[in-house]
Amino acid sequence: MDYYGFWQMLLEEIKAAPTNAQRRIVTFNDPRMYAGALSQWKSLKTKTPGLRQVQVSTLIRAFFVPAAGAGKLMDRYADSLCIEEDHRIQVHSVAPDKSGSAMMPWGVKSIHAPQAWSKSTGVHVKIGVIDTGVDFRHPDLKHSLASGVNLLNRGMMPLDDNGHGTHIAGTLAAAGGTRGMMGVAPRALIYPVKAFDHSGSAYVSDIVLGIDWCVQNKIDIINMSFGMKNRSKALHDVVIKAYRAGIAIIASSGNDGKRGGDYPARYPETIAVGALDRRQRVAAFSNRGPYIDVYGPGEGIPSCWLREGYKEMSGTSMATSHVTGAAALLLALRPGLSPRELKLLLRRTASPVRLRKGQRRASLGGGAADALRLLRAGARARRSSGSSSSAKAAAAAKA
Rank of each mutant, 00 (worst) to 15 (best):
I247D: 03
I219R: 00
L235K: 02
S232V: 05
M228I: 11
G246V: 04
L235A: 09
D237R: 05
A245L: 07
S253W: 04
A234N: 00
A248D: 07
A234S: 12
I219H: 00
R244N: 15
I221Q: 13
A242M: 05
I249T: 10
R244M: 13
N230L: 13
K241P: 09
K233T: 13
I247R: 02
Y243P: 11
N217Q: 08
M224F: 05
A251Q: 02
V239I: 12
M224H: 04
N217R: 13
N223L: 09
A251L: 06
M224S: 12
H236V: 05
I221C: 08
K229Y: 13
I219E: 09
I219D: 04
I250R: 03
I249C: 10
G254V: 04
A242S: 03
R244F: 12
I222H: 06
G254T: 04
M224D: 07
A234R: 00
L235Q: 03
I247M: 06
S232K: 04
I250Y: 06
Y243R: 11
V238M: 05
N230Q: 15
K229I: 14
A242F: 01
S253N: 10
G227F: 06
K218V: 02
D237Y: 01
L235P: 04
A245T: 07
G227P: 00
D220M: 05
A251D: 01
M224L: 14
K229W: 10
Y243N: 12
G254C: 05
I221W: 03
N230C: 14
M228E: 10
A245D: 09
S232R: 03
I221R: 11
G246P: 13
A251T: 13
L235Y: 02
I250H: 04
I221T: 04
L235R: 00
A245W: 02
S252L: 06
A242K: 00
V238A: 07
M224C: 14
I247W: 02
H236Q: 15
M228W: 07
A234P: 01
I219K: 05
K218A: 15
I250T: 01
I222F: 11
I240P: 06
D220S: 14
G246Y: 05
K241H: 11
